[in-house]
Amino acid sequence: MTAAFGRPEGSSDRVTGHHGTADRVRALATSYAENGESLEVLYADLDLVIDAGDRAAHDDLLRLAGRTWADAFMTRLNRLTCADPITGLSSVDHLTTHVEWLGGRGGGLEDRVLVVVDVVSRRDDVGRRNEKQFRRRLRIAVVADTLDAWFGTAGVVGAAVSSRRVAVVVHRQEALVMRAADLAESITTRLRLASDGHAARVGVVPLPAEVADAVSMIQDLGRPPAEPARAGSDDLRADSGTVGRKFSGPA
């Protein structure tokens, strides 16, 4: 490693000796990377606070910051999962890949079902675009949290297939269909949907035996409905779910 790009001989000592700030710069760079701030922002902020009088020490600090930021950023990148860290829900892409994996292990998909939750509220149509999006995101987070409480994380993969619909793949259980109504009620209560004359709807859908059909079904769940759903319509009631028209509800 050359003196230009490596940590030059004695550079760390020089930085510490002059400013005593090397550790703080490392901590700052790590913090910026972990909080999603760019390297450019870090450099710009450091330019403001580091004394530029001693050019060599200034450059050493920036190099130290750059390397530390890059290291922390790569660690963050490599430790990410396909799940949104806030809701714990995965991307639709991950859900379909997971179903392909389940089908590919040889066990088939017979032991799994999809639990599909729809939430719609009249309040969706009120306010500015950003406000509406924020409210929908918040509702999805509450649905995710409720599903987590009901099913736990063991063996469960779920995704927000649209801004108003969440689908999770869970182990097939006899009592699931009976519990779907309770789950719908629980979500309705938490989101106070009843005050708008709405209710969360939960469907339990067996996965098709063929992986390709299952993937196609999941992708269809995220598509907009052919017709707008009316408030209180029962196209996705708590039942042992059928695919097709019953899933053309609000998406």
Partner: peptide, 16 residues
């Protein structure tokens, strides 16, 4: 790598 992380997380998740 992120998909691998997800799948390993799923394998190691404990029953509540």
């Amino acid at each position: 790598v992120q998909h691998l992380q997800s799948q390993v997380r799923l394998l190691l998740a404990r029953e509540p």
